[in-house]
């Protein structure tokens, strides 16, 4: 790969973000820890009755994972803004949308993928039947990148502001309603022994669309937010 080519740029950025995440691996554990804590609170609040927990397990795990991703999203551009790396990224002679796509991918791998790994454990703690777990994993594999992509656009919009945590949640909620509905719909269908492919297919279609459009929207949003 020749230095300065688009593929070299993507590779360098991808390696940089993974290296940085590895050097701060404590941060990777935070969303997972958060998800574990929130999930363990539910049996304490609702009682340990197995039938009740099994009924709510899908929704609880999905919403918990969503909140954990929301928690991690703020770090997507935060350090790059603070140390000026984002300016360097924006001035690079490369398609910004592609670079941001690489950043979102690296962020998803370090922040969301560990959540998918622990999700079956959390679901089992809530007595989710084993035959529903594949539907849960399929829903998460499609829903989490979708949330990362949508969230990245909104994080980019708040890049020029100071306080953004609560605002980000407010902005993301309307966008994640359909994602939650279809992901939870797939799990609920699996729990009732019905075919759950249709909502998964909808999620897949939305993800394909978001993969193309979200990085471009993210680039446009970032240029607006940095225009001051």
């Amino acid at each position: 790969m020749t230095p300065g080519s688009t593929s070299a740029a993507c590779a360098a950025l991808f390696r940089r973000d993974l290296t940085l995440a590895w050097r701060r691996r404590g941060d990777i554990a935070m969303p997972v820890l958060y998800a574990v804590i929130v999930t363990t609170l539910f049996p304490f609040a609702l009682g340990p009755e197995a039938a009740l927990l099994a009924r709510i397990s899908g929704g609880v795990v999905l919403v918990t994972v969503l909140l954990a991703i929301l928690l991690a999203l703020d770090s997507l551009f935060r350090s790059d803004i603070d140390d000026g790396s984002l300016e360097q990224l924006m001035l690079a002679p490369q398609p910004l949308a592609l670079l941001l796509g690489v950043k979102i991918l690296a962020h998803w791998l370090t922040a969301a993928a560990p959540l998918i790994v622990v999700a079956p454990v959390l679901a089992s703690m809530l007595r989710m039947p084993a035959n529903v777990i594949p539907a849960l994993i399929a829903a998460l594999v499609l829903a989490t990148p979708l949330l990362s992509l949508l969230g990245a656009v909104l994080v980019a919009l708040t890049a020029g502001t100071r306080r953004s945590g609560m605002l980000l949640a407010l902005m993301l909620l309307p966008l994640c309603v359909p994602v939650v509905i279809f992901a939870a719909g797939a799990v609920a269908a699996a729990q009732e022994g019905l075919p759950w492919v249709a909502p998964i297919a909808w999620l897949g279609a939305a993800l394909a669309l978001a993969l193309v459009l979200a990085p471009m929207a993210c680039a446009a949003a970032l240029r607006i937010a940095m225009d001051a």
């Binding site: 940089r16 050097r23 350090s79 140390d83 000026g84 790396s85 001035l91």
Partner: peptide, 15 residues
């Protein structure tokens, strides 16, 4: 054609 060095140096402190 342009390279920029600003108040924030654009260096990753962990690297």
């Amino acid at each position: 054609a342009i390279v920029f060095l600003g108040h924030h140096l654009g260096l990753k402190l962990d690297l």
